[in-house]
Write a protein that binds this DNA or RNA. Sequence first.
DNA 1: GCCAACGTTGGC
DNA 2: GCCAACGTTGGC
Length: 157
Amino acid sequence: MPARRYWLVKSEPSVYSFQELQAEEGGEAEWDGVRNYAARNTMRDDMQVGDGVLFYHSNSKPNAIVGYAVVSRSGYPDHTAWDPKSEHPDLKSTPEDPIWYMVDIKAEALFRSPISLTQVKFDNELKDMVLAKNSRLSVQSVTPKEWKVILTMGMSE
DNA sequence: GCCAACGTTGGC
DNA sequence: GCCAACGTTGGC
């Protein structure tokens, strides 16, 4: 069994917040609608059941990592792509030949102390995070060190 | 295969 | 609300 890895997903809280994930049955949801190839590749190829997932609120006040989750199902085709009524249809993707993939994630805990983007940028151990460097990637990797620092900060008073 | 035009993300 | 940065598309 491969070592546990760590990831970060972004969502605009006005669209889908961490609290909404927590309110799902079992705190679990499909991470659908991602239409970016780098993020797709991560979900399809790299994310495994049990991996840790930081949950980031973008376009928010403040922008912050607000909680963490766990991968509860590894990559599989995103069926919303071939549903014309879905939020992000892409009819080039079909059940026979899917283009877009997703994972399922399950909420673990809301942080007592959310970690703002500003904090990340000014923290020596966090300033090299993908989050601080590439503002446009909605599914990204997190190092074990970054994960540990963020969990400690987030769960403290 | 290059690159200009366009659309989107997301910080400020 | 603005706009920089980036990803994607499509003409050549």
